[in-house]
Design a protein around this nucleic acid. Structure first.
Lengths: 127, 127
DNA sequence: CAACAGTGCTAAGTCTACCAAGCATTCGCT
DNA sequence: AGCGAATGCTTGGTAGACTTAGCACTGTTG
């Protein structure tokens, strides 16, 4: 009775696309920001169970929810929309609006490296 | 019998916000593009009754629907998102991607003037 | 006139995004 | 040990986004 949700069995072959990647992205960003599920849910003004489900790719959040999440994580809204496939991937640029975001979005850094950098950065500016 | 929308009566006092303006915007853009409800609904891959309700402000469409509508109307997605309040009003610019759009978005033109301009433009390029 | 295609709208139903309540585990702490 | 607080997750339900039928009207056209 663990998963009453996936009992479908109809078509799970093609059901793991960009949706999952969005949830994973949010989760990773949340952890980099050192927030718990409830904290982020609170900031983004959604319930924590729902956020949990979103992060696991069970539901695709509406644009408004994405907006709330983006603001709570200090990410630009465009970034999340793009991740969600709601906005065609912008030609070249990422829209970093802060050092935090710039770091966290850099694809050439590993999660650990990001954490380290952010920690140092926070040390400088005073957490 | 012409206007069946006057039967409102229920609650028109406080229910007319930015939501309506989105519907009105879509409707005006659709008419400027000389499309029927069914035609646009078809292009945007939604049902025509639903589009009708969206245009009258009864429902707020999801981002995906907005995307479909934007593409069908040759509007930039950002423009519609902004109108829907899903994207903070961009600092400076409108994102016109065509002469059509540039005309239709110009706030200094009346609907009639836009129609005329578009007609002429279409005449030049061959509809 | 009748028949038809076109317009927008209503009505009734399905699906899913989202919430409130509560479970299970793990972390301090005394 | 044992309590409280924090973590993430499951369950059951509500609401609203969205669909398939079908209605009412306005032209055409024969």
């Amino acid at each position: 009775m663990l998963d009453s949700r996936d009992m479908a069995g109809k078509k799970e072959t093609s059901n793991r696309g960009p949706l999952d990647s969005l949830g994973a992205f949010i989760r990773s960003q949340r952890q980099l920001a050192r927030l718990s599920l409830r904290q982020l849910a609170d900031l983004a003004k959604v319930s924590n169970p729902y956020l949990s489900q979103v992060e696991r790719g069970l539901y695709k959040p509406s644009a408004e929810v994405l907006k709330g999440i983006a603001e709570a994580l200090h990410l630009s809204v465009e970034t999340l929309y793009t991740q969600a496939g709601l906005l065609g991937a912008k030609a070249g640029r990422q829209h970093a609006t802060s050092v935090d975001e710039a770091i966290r979005l850099d694809g050439r850094l590993t999660a650990d490296q990001k954490e380290t950098l952010i920690r140092v950065y926070r040390g400088f500016v005073g957490d």
